[in-house]
Simulated assay, not measured.
Amino acid sequence: MEEREMGELQQALTKAEVLTEALPWINKMRGKTIVVKYGGSAMEDEQLMTQVVGDIELLKLMGMRVVLVHGGGKAISAMLKQLNLPVKFKDGLRVTDDATMEAVQEVLIGKVNQKLVWSLNEYGHNAVGISGADGKTLKAAPISPELGRVGHIREVSPELIETILDDDYIPVIASVACGPDGFFNVNADEAAAAVAEALHADKLIYLTDVDGLLADVNDKESLIRSLTKTETREILDSGELDGGMVPKIRSILEAMDRGVSEVVILNGKAPHSLLLEIFTDAGVGTLFTQD
Rank of each mutant, 00 (worst) to 15 (best):
V172H: 05
L274R: 05
T20L: 15
N185S: 07
E234F: 14
L165R: 08
A193E: 04
D134I: 03
L266T: 09
V66R: 02
G268C: 08
G129P: 01
S77L: 01
L13C: 01
P271D: 08
A282T: 11
E190W: 08
H152E: 13
N187Y: 10
A196P: 00
N218A: 07
L68W: 07
S226E: 15
K32M: 10
V156E: 04
A141Q: 12
R4H: 10
L147P: 00
A215Q: 14
V117K: 07
L236E: 13
G148F: 11
V69H: 09
E240M: 14
V95S: 01
F183K: 08
A12L: 11
V172K: 04
M64I: 03
E122A: 15
V246Q: 14
V260G: 09
E240I: 13
R4I: 11
F184I: 04
W118P: 00
A133V: 08
S273L: 10
L236I: 15
S238D: 12
E3L: 12
D98G: 00
R65A: 02
Y123W: 12
D45V: 03
K220G: 00
I170G: 04
D91G: 03
M64L: 15
K90S: 09
T50V: 02
V104S: 13
D189A: 12
M49D: 03
D166T: 14
R233M: 10
W118L: 12
R65V: 00
L160K: 14
A255R: 02
D202T: 02
L276S: 12
I164P: 03
V217L: 04
V210S: 05
G73M: 09
V186L: 11
K229P: 00
W25K: 13
H200I: 03
V95R: 02
I161N: 04
E106I: 13
